[in-house]
């Protein structure tokens, strides 16, 4: 197949960028979207042009590196699929394809299609864990956990941290990302002692990073390659509001 690409090119952080047109000829429908970009890049390099920078690593939909806005849709047209698992058979011969980086103040562009998503790490760092210093754990079967609680926790824990939820949200909100972690840990007995503190701190950090609010458009759920439900956002809101009305001891003991 032959395609026309319009790709965002930006030489560096803060530098001006623009959409540049490329022809992608002789593309096999069996290729993944990233392999198509590989081919375009190989040809660019053969003609002495700078290849298009884009983040990618595992190419099997689990590392969360790839982050392409394809024709206005985060990770492109296939549901529950990261850009790397999107195949060219999802496109028509002769189609025009627009490719852009995620857009959010909290995700500054590094180069071309590469953005900095460290903000998501910082949201985890302030509370997205169950503290268990190595060596302090009881036997794994000491606490029984109902199967359905683990399954619902796992649905949320699958988040790959790609940031598609932010990219797809009209408000640039990171609520689905944050809520997925709050839900995962909040459903397990191991997550209970820090549950209120976790919700409070992660929600605050989300705002500090400059993400937008959640207006419940539902776009994040649709964009999520792991199809995480906005039910998690309801849980986050509940945990946060409950933490305000009944702060747990850990939160009360804290000096901040």
């Amino acid at each position: 197949m032959n395609l026309t690409l319009h790709v965002w090119r930006q030489p560096g952080p803060g530098a001006p960028g623009r959409m540049v047109r490329y022809q992608a000829a002789d593309i096999s429908p069996e290729m993944s979207f990233l392999e198509m970009l590989d081919v375009v890049n190989e040809r660019l390099m053969e003609t002495g042009e700078a290849p298009i920078a884009f983040d990618h690593d595992c190419r099997e939909g689990i590392c969360g590196s790839c982050s392409l806005m394809i024709n206005g849709v985060a990770h492109g047209p296939e549901l529950g699929t990261a850009s790397c698992q999107l195949h060219m058979r999802s496109f028509r011969d002769g189609q025009e394809i627009h490719v852009e980086p995620w857009r959010a103040r909290a995700f500054p562009v590094v180069k071309d299609l590469v953005v900095n998503r460290s903000a998501l790490d910082r949201i985890i760092a302030v509370g997205g864990y169950a503290s268990a210093p190595t060596g302090s754990a009881p036997d794994g079967n000491a606490t029984l956990i109902p199967k359905d609680a683990v399954e619902t926790a796992m649905d949320a824990a699958q988040c790959i941290g790609c940031g598609a939820c932010v990219a797809a949200c009209p408000n640039g909100s990171a609520s689905l990302f944050t809520a997925a972690k709050i839900t995962h840990l909040g459903l397990l007995p191991q997550g209970q002692p820090e549950r209120g503190r976790r919700a409070r701190r992660m929600v605050e950090q989300m705002d500090i990073e400059g993400f937008g609010q959640c207006s419940l458009y539902g776009e994040c759920q649709e964009a999520c390659p792991k199809e995480i439900s906005i039910d998690t956002i309801t849980r986050m809101n509940r945990d946060y509001l409950r933490a305000l009305t009944a702060p747990d001891r850990a939160a009360a003991a804290e000096s901040d």
């Binding site: 864990y129 169950a130 268990a132 190595t134 060596g135 302090s136 754990a137 009881p138 036997d139 794994g140 079967n141 606490t143 029984l144 956990i145 109902p146 199967k147 683990v150 926790a153 796992m154 824990a157 995962h184 840990l185 397990l188 191991q190 997550g191």
Partner: peptide, 19 residues
Amino acid sequence: IDQCVAQGVPFAREYGGLL
């Protein structure tokens, strides 16, 4: 396994709640 369970790793469970 104990360490990871304590961190909240959602290992698969039986209906009885055991790993």
